Amino acid sequence: MSGSSRTDGAGDRGPRSGEPTEPVRVWHGLADTSVLLDGFHALKHALRFDASIPVALTSDKAAVLALAQDLAPDVSDALDALLAETDEATLRALVPRLHPTAVAALAVRPSRGGNLRALERTPRVAPVVVLDDPRNLGNAGAVIRLAAGFGATGVVTTGTLDPWHPTVVRGGAGLHFATAVERVDVGELPKGPLFALDAEGEDIRGVEIPDDAVLAFGSERSGLSAELRARTDHLVALPMRPQVSSYNLATSVAMALFHWSSGRPPKAQA
């Protein structure tokens, strides 16, 4: 989308004062403590799943609303009310890398306590996905997007990676708000039978994954940690051709969640 100049004073600077306008001031005040939503699709998903979004900016509001009419008419009115327009130079100065849709917003991160309660609530109707000491931010974001699509109860990470890092949120396309996402220690994993993916495990095709399962996946480089392996109830393996060493992390999660969901009746869409 191309940038457009403002003539009504709603952009970066007031028409005479040279001061930032209110949406930009709000952005500066919240940027260090908020979740950055990069692009139209991230903002769309966050709105659909009731994220609290205090400010959203674009350099071309008309183009964004036209895109919404084509792709997401259900959020058009919310976008119209929320979006403030600023010039492209200001927008680029506020974000590390401007999304091609020229949209950026700040959202309030859900409380850790609320997420932990959601992860611990029983009975569960869908598994919790565990990423054991993941290293790749993009992979973590892709897993969160997958988990949200399958309706998983949540995604938790162990280790040092922050699952709310801006790069992870970008990879998740705003779907962090559709499921519970937190970082925990192995000893704090949600209750439930722990199924861990490992090449030495039983073929997953012969295993029934219950709704209250905790599905654990090792890191891309070193696999399952010794601590998590010691807590595992069931080691399961994905089918793999001999001499193929591994699958991408997100691919592994997708196959495991599809196996869990297969045979279950389709759920009504909200």
Rank of each mutant, 00 (worst) to 15 (best):
P190G: 07
L228I: 02
A216S: 11
E88N: 10
T251W: 11
V128A: 06
T158G: 07
L47H: 01
A213L: 05
G263T: 07
A84R: 13
R48P: 06
D185N: 14
V156D: 02
V64R: 06
P96M: 04
P242W: 12
S52Y: 11
K191A: 15
R48T: 10
L37Y: 03
P190V: 03
L224E: 01
I53N: 03
S76D: 12
Q69S: 15
W260Y: 11
W260E: 03
P239K: 09
F195K: 01
A147N: 05
A268M: 12
R145V: 10
A180C: 11
H45N: 15
V64H: 08
D74E: 15
D80E: 14
T167G: 11
S2Y: 13
A78G: 05
F177S: 02
N136K: 10
R112G: 09
K44R: 15
A93P: 00
F40G: 06
T21F: 05
L224C: 10
R112H: 12
G114L: 10
T90R: 15
F195A: 08
G174S: 10
Q243Y: 14
G159H: 07
T158Q: 04
G192D: 02
P23C: 08
A78E: 04
P123I: 06
Q243H: 14
V253Q: 02
P166Q: 07
P190R: 02
D132R: 04
A268V: 14
L106R: 05
A256E: 00
W27N: 00
R124P: 03
D8C: 01
H165P: 11
R145H: 10
G141Q: 01
L235V: 03
H259I: 08
P134S: 09
V156P: 06
G138H: 10
D132C: 10
H28M: 13
L119D: 03
L119E: 01
P110T: 09
R97D: 15
T167L: 14
V214R: 04
E22Y: 11
E182A: 14
P127L: 08
P239D: 05
V130W: 09
T251M: 13
V253P: 01
E19Y: 07
H99I: 00
V186R: 00
T101C: 12
A237V: 00
W164N: 04
D132V: 08
T21D: 02
A173W: 12
P193A: 11
G14H: 13
S219W: 04
L65V: 07
D162F: 03
D8A: 12
L249Q: 07
P265Y: 09
H234G: 02
D8Q: 07
E188I: 07
P20Q: 06
E220P: 09
A237E: 00
R135T: 11
A180F: 09
V207G: 05
A178C: 09
H28T: 13
R135E: 12
